[in-house]
Simulated assay, not measured.
Amino acid sequence: MLFDPLDIGLFVIVLIVLVGPFVVKKIERNLEAFLFVMGVLAVTVSNFYNKANLVETLGYTEQQLELIGWNMHIVMEAVQEPVVKGIVPAVLFAGLIFHYGRSYAQRGINGILKLIPLKIVVFLIVVILGLSSSIITAIIASLLLVELFNCMPFDRQTKINLVIIACFSIGLGAVLTPVGEPLSTIAVTKLQGEPYHAGFFFLFNQLAIYIVPGCLAFGLLAMFFTGKAKISECVVTEEEDGGLREVVIRAAKVYLFVMALLLLGSGMKVVIDKYILGIAPQILYWVNMISAILDNATLTAAEISPSMGLDQIQAVLMGLLISGGMLIPGNIPNIISAGKLGITSKEWARLGVPLGLIAMVIYFVWIFYVPFHIEFHF
């Protein structure tokens, strides 16, 4: 493989994306705009690759070459996909619903907390939203999560910890059906032909044995993090809610965030093809921690192939799913929750990174070295 100096440029961009929000406060306060600029820069750098060399070294087709660098396809995808995939409309619509229905939610939560212990309520929220996200989508699940925890009697740090844990659960659970998140949609689409003939329940059949215990484990962990919180009446004021203006601004920020991740993924395509594809699944599992800052749907599209064995497919997807919870850009639930609750990159990483690494180690041992596997059939 010929080494191209442009690769260094793209790796530097990845490093800046990883480090920038933690060391520069202005970047932290304007994370969406920062990621958008980095995405534009990544696509611009990829524009300078020698396309003849890509044909020779990577076997790119004419169609693949047209997707490298700036082109109408990437521009239209970046502009349209946040809307076409339903991400922004869902955020906007659900935001309006929750804004006008907040008083009912407050009364409902207050009533539930008088009947059911707080720890049990937290456990049920994390597990049910995690598993149901594959049906109601990860977007709606994360919006429900934020609104429910806004009505819970927790201090800010406890609320942040619980939201991060719940986002891990939602990120895992959403993969079980093609409607849960873009990653699962792309995976099923790429595997729908020979030899797997993937249908609606393909990912459930292959991954439920890993996903369901994971969601339950995160629910139990959330119970631990509730500490000794005392039950009190939930009242979210108009000032805390932010009003209709905040609903629109949040939707606009999610739009820019998703657009930025799409651009980053497109700009990184060449280095992904050069250095990630073709390596052993045990290594690829860990390499996929880049999903913490890149669009995991893009990585799925690049990595998943019908020529892979089931063990390889499981390793690729689980690596992407778990690491996606480690940092805010890792998946849509993180982005929505952090934006709504004002969680900074440092606050998220303080728990997200160690929790993600522990989960990665546990699943690595389970997937590759524990000869216990159940395949469901629906």
Rank of each mutant, 00 (worst) to 15 (best):
L2F: 10
V14F: 08
V17S: 08
V19W: 08
V19R: 12
A33P: 01
L35S: 11
A42F: 11
T44C: 06
T61S: 15
I68N: 10
Q80K: 14
F98A: 11
Y104A: 13
A105N: 07
R107N: 11
I112Q: 14
L113R: 14
F123V: 02
F123I: 03
L145E: 15
L148S: 01
N150K: 13
L162F: 10
I164C: 05
L176C: 03
Q192I: 05
Q192N: 12
G193Q: 14
H197D: 08
G199R: 08
L203N: 06
N205T: 03
Q206S: 01
P213T: 00
G219T: 09
K230G: 06
V236M: 10
E238D: 04
E239G: 00
V247E: 12
K253I: 02
V254P: 12
F257L: 01
L263D: 04
L264T: 05
G265N: 02
V270H: 11
I279A: 09
Y285W: 12
T300S: 01
E303D: 04
I304C: 01
S305A: 12
D311W: 03
Q314K: 10
G319D: 05
L321K: 00
G324W: 00
N331I: 02
P333E: 09
I336P: 05
I336F: 11
L341S: 03
I343H: 08
S345M: 07
G356W: 04
Y363I: 06
V370S: 09
F372V: 11
I374L: 14
